[in-house]
Design a protein around this nucleic acid. Structure first.
Lengths: 181, 181
DNA sequence: GATCATACGGAGTCATCACTCCGGATAGCA
DNA sequence: TGCTATCCGGAGTGATGACTCCGTATGATC
């Protein structure tokens, strides 16, 4: 693969994360091309359909989230680490709701790279959750799916500018999850 | 207004609630016309723009929700009434998420009939909430906005068929709201 | 039952968007 | 530096959807 080709692919993915994140999946591919400073044909050469582009962007984004989540596994305070995870996911999810919608449980295809990436991400969340539970800082019967569902839910209403309302809602959910604060 | 005109207006609003509810605001006006068994021009004669149609549908729907909510004010068990309210709103919201998105706090215009209807609806929720709080069946510092935010959030992920996951999430949120179960 | 204001249907218009075609660069290598 | 496989841009193309035009039908009033 030629170097300029690889570089453009990167620029496109970066732009797509921004565009689809803020505008939802309804945002146009042309907008992505504009933001990436690339011709529309170049986008379609790298990603034959809009769906392919969205999926590639989602995989990349989920991988990033997974990395951030795994980093929290080493935190000294498991309860705080978990609370911090939820807060972070909700607020970053606020500007990427279209991508979060691709998580399982939101009516997505059963197999494929997106689902794999999502599972890896959920595994990472599970590790943080279990550490909190072992430390007695989260209720024992909570599952990763519970956390996933609640985070996706909160992310949907977490529009930028509604910080205070969202913070209150997150606090109530964390109480429901038995997280010590 | 002629009788057939009024009747068609009703059929259109009914169809719109169904179509926009399940398909989101992205659903086409033609689909509404088809479902209402009416020509496309008839829809636009009654509601000059698609936005007008969505707003009229939302006002109607919010009024219906308000009525159901006020009915819960007379329940014997305030805590159960509140829990039942949340459950009902989340599950009905699941098939009308596009309309629930028009509630304040989701980036909608400040004035107008939709906002008025939404406020009336929130008032009704407030009455149910306060009764539960007075009975010691809900935490004292919870506000109507908290409930509104959480319900909207849950409704977004409450796809039909995900009943069990949603029920668990609702349970956790109710725990966070201090609702006795 | 005649008149006419009110309503109706569906073909057409215009804009948007996903996706394609093709002539013109350019990176990498000898 | 010259060659070529790879890559690029932007003007199409076809489909879809919001909205309009206009000839026809019908409910209300006399």
């Amino acid at each position: 693969m030629r170097r300029d080709g690889a570089a453009n692919r990167e620029r496109i993915l970066l732009a797509a994360e921004q565009v689809f994140g803020t505008g939802g999946a309804a945002a146009s591919t042309e907008e992505v091309a504009r933001q990436a400073q690339v011709g529309i044909a170049t986008v379609f050469r790298h990603f034959p359909t809009k769906q392919d582009l969205i999926e590639a962007t989602a995989v990349r984004y989920l991988g990033k989230l997974e990395g951030e989540t795994r980093r929290l596994t080493g935190e000294a305070e498991p309860g705080q680490a978990f609370a911090s995870l939820v807060r972070t996911l909700v607020s970053t999810g606020a500007t990427k709701m279209a991508l979060l919608n691709l998580l399982p449980g939101d009516g997505y295809e059963v197999a494929g790279p997106v689902t794999t990436a999502a599972h890896n991400f959920l595994d990472a969340i599970g590790m943080v959750l279990e550490r909190a539970q072992s430390a007695g800082a989260a209720r024992q019967d909570a599952t990763v799916d519970d956390v996933s569902t609640l985070v996706r839910a909160l992310a949907h209403v977490a529009a930028p500018g509604e910080d205070e309302a969202v913070e209150r809602a997150v606090g109530i959910v964390l109480d429901g999850l038995g997280v010590r604060r």
